[in-house]
Design a protein around this nucleic acid. Structure first.
Lengths: 230, 230
DNA sequence: GCAAAAGTGTTGTGTCTACACCCATGT
DNA sequence: ACATGGGTGTAGACACAACACTTTTGC
């Protein structure tokens, strides 16, 4: 009855997302070896002996970006289709990482940013993973404060609006964005203003996220417990 | 540079949830062997050679319940703390399974149902997994049609209300539950009525879920795209 | 008639979108 | 002055919780 368990290889992967030039982009590197030689792939790699998954993806990301620049990291899913790797039986646990828009990490020569809505052909099931990551981000922008991980510490509402538009893929008005996030206690004014731009205009107020950790702000979409307000 | 990847063992686990006797319960079995001999644990087991995770958990669940009775199955998370197993380096991918309230699967002698809010001490990190499963169910009850997996094909609003109360852990009124779910197009009347109970009362209308597959019904908690209604 | 259970009508509240309007700066 | 971008005021739509009230049954 002491069965001998089989052992697959296991990799950790991350779709690292950042809004760059007004578009949601993800970090990819070009594979130098088979399989999928020459194709683009997500950063990541094998799990080390007795290493936790999150430690593993942080370690592998270090080879591509400064991990301190990843403002948020969360596990997405584990891919296990036996056909996902042509040569070996390999599982992959995928993460989504978010990088604030004001940093520009130095990346290796084989590595670059690619718009999520215009991906090249990706190795393995990495294309699917990027879409799952994007959808997770979009969903959480609606009911959490996850925007903190896409934005600089201080920013104007217009700047924040650009980030939301890029990530959500649809228009958002600065007016309503500000009101929703302030009402929920997600955003607060710093009290300072930025100078007007070269063409004039009223100097914008600066805002910051109240918290730099993920927090659910709209817990009950419906079916609230009694007495929790209409 | 051809590194030799290390290989952990990997198990699939499932928190199978069902509302029984008005309480949300989960299926546990008593371990006959070390480690954690005598403790309660989630159903599941080792991944077979080149087996996908979902196939694996379905196979293992077959030993505890008829898998046809699991109305919904979805992956939750992969646990990887190296200390989670005392003897071996083992990863575990957890699923949540839902069973409709009108079936009573026959289960082996070592297996039984336990209220989620009154769990015994569980082996490994299985207690944590059950709580993640419960929270996932609660969240999805709010913005999806996932109730279909807890309910019989046809039911009265009062019966559905009992399921929601048990799963959510707070009161829900039949009046508002019906209106919310019908307005969203999740629930529809079958057109038939059930007989009155022995003590009288108006005979209740029967309802059914419009779809028996998971569907998001409240997509944008906020920050809706323009023109999508107030 | 009366108790019991189901179901509808209605009111009030909070949150959202949309849009008009006012504010502060550069040229 | 006036263009430019920032910000506020306000109205209308909607979804929800709460609760009163009506309907339909058994006894």
């Amino acid at each position: 009855m002491t069965e001998q368990p089989s052992r697959a290889t296991h990799v950790s992967l991350a779709a690292v997302l950042q809004v760059r030039q007004g578009r949601l982009q993800t970090l990819l590197w070009r594979r130098a070896q088979d399989p999928y030689r020459g194709d683009w792939a997500l950063p990541g790699g094998y799990l080390a002996e007795r290493e936790a998954l999150e430690a593993s993806i942080r370690r592998h990301l270090t080879q591509k970006v400064d991990v301190g620049e990843v403002a948020h990291l969360e596990q997405l899913t584990t891919m296990s289709e036996p056909s996902r790797h042509p040569d070996e039986w390999q599982l992959a646990t995928a993460y989504v990482g978010l990088v604030a828009s004001d940093v520009d990490p130095t990346v290796p020569a084989d590595t670059g940013w690619h718009p999520v809505d215009q991906l090249p052909s990706l190795a393995f099931d990495h294309g699917e993973i990027v879409l799952v990551a994007r959808d997770r981000l979009r969903a959480k922008l609606s009911y959490t404060n996850i925007g903190f991980a896409l934005a600089p510490i201080e920013f104007t509402v217009s700047e924040l609006r650009e980030l939301y538009v890029a990530a959500l893929g649809h228009e958002v008005t600065a007016t309503n964005l500000q009101r929703v996030l302030v009402r929920r206690g997600v955003l607060e004014p710093t009290g300072t203003r930025r100078e007007s731009g070269p063409v004039g205009g009223r100097p914008p107020a600066l805002f910051r996220f109240c918290r730099q950790e993920l927090e659910v702000t709209d817990q009950f979409a419906v079916l609230r417990p009694p007495g929790s307000g209409a």
